[in-house]
Design a protein around this nucleic acid. Structure first.
Lengths: 196, 196, 196, 196
DNA sequence: TATGAATGAGGATTCATTCAT
DNA sequence: AATGAATGAATCCTCATTCAT
């Protein structure tokens, strides 16, 4: 039960070590040697568990995305109305442990990579698409499909923009302000429609 | 007057070569050798004009930001009302030559760098602050200072978010959709107030 | 009798796996991991049965040489005159399954190694000496010992040269041409003497 | 006059260093580090002059082949009859400075490489073809084209075989014996025809 | 001003080998 | 008997930077 093979354990350790290094020193600092040191293993071990550095980085990206995915999923599961589910997506993006410069900068680095590395782009797009469709699915009964799409684009863009802001504000951007901003827009967008 | 020293000419050439390389092959590809080759100069010359690679990259960043700054300034100068000036800022961010994945990628890469390189952060923040205050200055008579700040944050975040989207969409995100999105929000934000 | 211990079976499996890898991917590709994979065993097992990689390679060389030795022995046993026995040696060197670039390449690689690894040299020399003495033994009654030695040197050299040619011809050198060449020389060398 | 650019000088130095290392420690020992050390340069310099290790090895091979080519060319130029030119080719292959195990083993290693590396094969084949056609061209008036081809194949194979022998004989195979062997065959092959 | 020779640090990767289980 | 975890050495390669000319 919950038993994991050493293989899985090590892979997780390494991925978390990579995540740690990225948070502290940047994505570029996550060399095999640095990650191995962080994990307390030899350089060779990293390539024993991941066939290349790229594979490790990709696994780390997937790991980080999975953390985010869980956050969203849990909050959405707890929500009881379509609108509440959209709010849940927003809240998940600004949860206390998550909305931090050290995460924001990693996310940005991966987005930057995406332009020239299709593999990374695909991974990031999956995340984005899921967020987008979650929002659309829950807004379309309220706003109709066309408007739902427009609002979803606005919401996700607002969120991304506030993450950029987070990365570039020393100490991090104020979480509450960011959260408020997006929720307000949601209210504005849905309110207008309702009143219309 | 307006005359440039050879020194300045060379520096400009190099900075433009660096920009070119970044656009075509990514920020990571802008090594001294690659930039020198692009500029048709020897590797040694690059370090003769910039004391280090970082200095070249920084100059390139400033150069790119200046191009953007001009775009904004020109459009704002042509605008004849506060609201038109805000629209001018938005239009500048989605001008046809500018809103492209290769530019988005460079901008993102620099934002990602910003977390660990205070110098880069400062440069990027200057830009951001200027955009922000331009917007606030032109909205405050209309919305009051507090609301103006809120709307300015929303506008800049939306813009940034749509730039992220641009970087991650193969072929680039649709410029018109992006532009519309932000202008619509502006109308919504100002319209509501006015009607209130 | 004829029963083989598991130990011996495994060693043979590994040696044949190594041979297989060498044939398909070159001597250089025969790493422990690659050979283990080919044999369907773990890397650790290879070193359980051979105390080092070198030992495995050496065993493989001996195995290959033994295959060749059998080919020669069988054909010689079937021959019924001294001259026929010499011809048998030649035929063995150009048998259909044997005279192929992938074998030639392995043989050449080992010959090249021989200069710096006395152990390999000894193994290869045993083979060469046996071929040489077989020929001399069967020619000396016909040609006298001195001439027999000369002809034997010519024959073995011709054969080796045609193996080099085989290695360097894409698709392999024509077997029949090679075989003919050596047999013709044999006829020439013995015919001349006889007629003399 | 005879002035060479530093570039050319260094490239030659490196190629000769590589040759030296190969002679003393084997082709496999010619790593970038080892060659750099032999040349008294840093590892980085090797890649400054050759874009990869492979390029260095290839240049070294070409250098060695060129040395051989000169030997042949000079001797052929001095010869005054077709037959003498064929003899010149043979003599060149067994010249005192050339017919040595340290050279033989390098040649063998490259031939072994040839099976799986088309580039090496092509280089080696050029050499072989030239030797072959030299011989054929000079024998065909004497023997007719068909017989000339056969004899040329025999001669080159004999030579190659005696080079293999050289590589595998500790201390080297007797040069005079080798030379004699090939010259004798030539006499036999041409003599027979003449008497025929 | 301009070149490019030279270095050395750092990075990814391969691989034989040892060892605990 | 068997596995594969772990290591560390060696290798190729990239690059910023320094310096002599």
């Amino acid at each position: 039960m919950g038993r994991k093979s050493i293989d899985e354990i090590r892979r997780l350790e390494l991925v978390e070590a990579a995540f740690q290094v990225m948070k502290q020193e940047g994505v570029g600092a996550a060399s095999l040697a640095r990650v191995a040191a962080e994990a307390g293993l030899s350089k060779g071990m990293v390539l024993h568990y991941f066939k290349s550095r790229d594979a490790l980085i990709e696994a780390t990206l997937r790991h980080i995305n999975a953390l985010y995915g869980h956050e969203v999923a849990e909050r959405m599961a707890a929500a009881e109305s379509p609108l509440a589910r959209v709010e849940a997506v927003i809240e998940a993006n600004f949860s206390a442990w998550y909305y931090k410069p050290e995460h924001a900068h990693i996310w940005l680095a991966f987005c930057a990579q995406a332009t020239f590395e299709p593999r990374f782009r695909r991974i990031q797009r999956v995340l984005h698409s899921r967020m987008q469709s979650n929002i659309i699915a829950n807004l379309k009964s309220l706003l109709g499909i066309e408007e739902a799409k427009r609002v979803a684009l606005a919401l996700t863009s607002l969120i991304d923009g506030l993450w950029v802001r987070c990365a570039m504000t020393p100490g991090g951007f104020d979480r509450e302000t960011a959260r408020r901003q997006v929720l307000d827009y949601l209210k504005l967008a849905t309110g207008r429609r309702r009143s219309a």
